[in-house]
Design a protein around this nucleic acid. Structure first.
Length: 422
RNA sequence: GGAGAUGUGGCUGAGUGGUUGAAGGCACCGGUUUCGAAAACCGGCAUCGGGGCAACUCGAUCGUGAGUUCAAAUCUCACCAUCUCCGCCA
């Protein structure tokens, strides 16, 4: 959510930003509606002021005849207030609905483009493996190594269901433990976050409105979150954080649930696109400064790249273009790992910053030296998501005999083995 | 799931219909005193929104939302949370 004052003072910038993001919204119309809201609010407040004033007179007045007269008068004013409040309430509801749809303004540096095909490759790292045999895809490899069971996964869960088993499960734990150590050294505090969250938090992060069809809901009208970003932003909601405590640096583990409702025909086999997975997420709350936001955004994105480098997985960095940038984001990088069987890079991580867009909805503030309150800035990035990263590992490190060479940093978490074999 | 109790500012705690945005205390900030500190004393100290260059002023907020009333922290209802007991349970 943007500040209505900011919108009013920068309507051209906000309108241009929305256009770049392909969000159909009329800022001029919103401002007209806001004028209406303020006008109606003033009318109601003026009448309330009158009632308050006269009520005090009534309390002090000894003359009972005058008292009765004043009470009678106030009764009619009250009716007037009620009618005006009714009108104001409708105006505010409409105002809020539109306010939730106003997208965050993309940063100047974000490349312009219509959709994901225009995302810009910034850099690539690592050497793509060259095989002197025909590389297998992760499904074949992992089935042969008895690391996964899709048939029974579908029997039990349904479409996109899977069991990780044996070294598939071991490798997952190895990655989690390694990631904990890797990111722990970067001064994040470690959390295990709830995945069941109240609706309001999804509005806070910007996952609602829009995107509702991709989110699981419980019969208690809670939601299953698709990322620990949601509970971790909720963690400090309605709080005032001491400035000396900033930045807050969190590494949060949680199960993640995504219905993938709009993607039925995509990645129908394997572990790339599943409805239930696990993720460690980096999340930072910092003071309200663009410079700080940019600094930490670069850092958390680099953290993930360094993580991949330590595993020796080839990747590329994409700068997300305006047309593909989510409503709440100011700027995003995706990190994509090389997937040999698909002969392309696939997304493993996304790092974004939001300025105070999320903090405003969550009401997370801090007090500066002058005693003034500000909304914090928020940022987040994947630290590592399983099982998707298993795809990159088994495919890039597969051997001619169908075994998989374990990345060196993971070996001590895998019983000091060098290979996953049958 | 059943029964009962509770929910006031950063904390503590008073307040059961009328200048109460809310006493007192703690914490915090400024000052006096002191070589300095402590203690003591004096003063200040909620947030959000509207108007105003400003002093200031108006509105809202006592878990959340609705209601009763000229007037609600105080009365009514619903919801949420916490605590205690019982039941169930990894």
């Amino acid at each position: 959510m943007l500040d209505i004052k900011f919108i009013r003072e920068n309507k051209d910038i906000v309108q241009a930003g929305a256009k770049k993001k392909h969000v159909d919204i009329d800022i001029e119309k919103l401002i007209t509606l806001d004028d209406e809201r303020l006008k109606e609010l003033k009318e109601v407040e003026d009448l309330r002021a009158e009632v308050n004033r006269v009520s005090n007179d009534i309390a002090r007045d000894q003359d009972s005849a005058l008292k009765i007269q004043l009470i009678e008068e106030m009764r009619t004013v009250k009716e007037d207030i009620k009618a005006k409040e009714e009108k104001l309430k409708k105006t505010i509801e409409e105002w809020q609905k539109i306010m939730l749809q106003v997208p965050n303004v993309p940063d100047m540096s974000v490349p312009e483009g219509d959709g994901e095909e225009n995302n810009k490759e910034i850099l690539t790292w690592g050497e793509k493996p060259r095989f002197d045999f025909t590389p297998k895809d992760h499904v074949e490899l992992m089935l042969k190594l008895d690391m996964v069971d899709f048939e029974r996964g579908v029997k039990v869960h349904g479409f996109r269901g899977y069991f990780l088993k044996n070294d598939g499960a071991e490798l997952s734990w190895a990655i989690w433990n390694y990631a904990r150590k890797f990111f722990g050294e970067k001064k994040f505090s470690t959390f295990i976050a709830p995945a069941i969250v109240r609706k309001q938090h999804l509005y806070g992060t910007g996952h609602l409105p829009g995107g509702a069809e991709d989110i699981y809901q419980t019969q208690d009208e809670d939601y299953l979150s698709g990322t620990a970003e949601i509970p971790m932003m909720g963690y400090h909601s309605n709080e005032i954080i001491g400035k000396e405590e900033l930045p807050k640096r969190y590494l949060a583990f949680s199960p993640c649930f995504r219905r993938e409702a709009g993607a039925h025909s995509k990645d129908t086999k394997g572990l790339i696109r599943v409805q239930e997975f696990y993720k460690l997420e980096q999340l930072i709350l910092c003071e309200a400064s663009h410079t700080e936001s940019v600094k930490y955004h670069e850092e958390i994105n680099r953290n993930f790249e360094e993580f991949l480098e330590s595993l020796d997985i080839p990747y590329r960095r994409l700068e997300i273009c305006t047309g593909d940038l989510k409503s709440a984001h100011v700027k995003s990088y995706d990190t994509e790992a090389w997937i040999p069987s698909q002969n392309q890079y696939r997304e493993l991580s996304s790092a974004s910053y939001y300025h105070d867009f999320q903090a405003r909805r969550f009401n997370i503030r801090y007090k500066d030296e002058a005693g003034k309150y500000h909304f914090v800035h928020s940022l987040n990035s994947t630290a590592v998501a399983t099982p998707r990263i298993l795809v990159a590992i088994v495919e890039n490190f597969q051997q001619a005999d169908g075994s998989v060479k374990i990345p060196e940093v993971l070996r001590k978490y895998m019983g000091d083995r060098e290979f996953i074999t049958k």
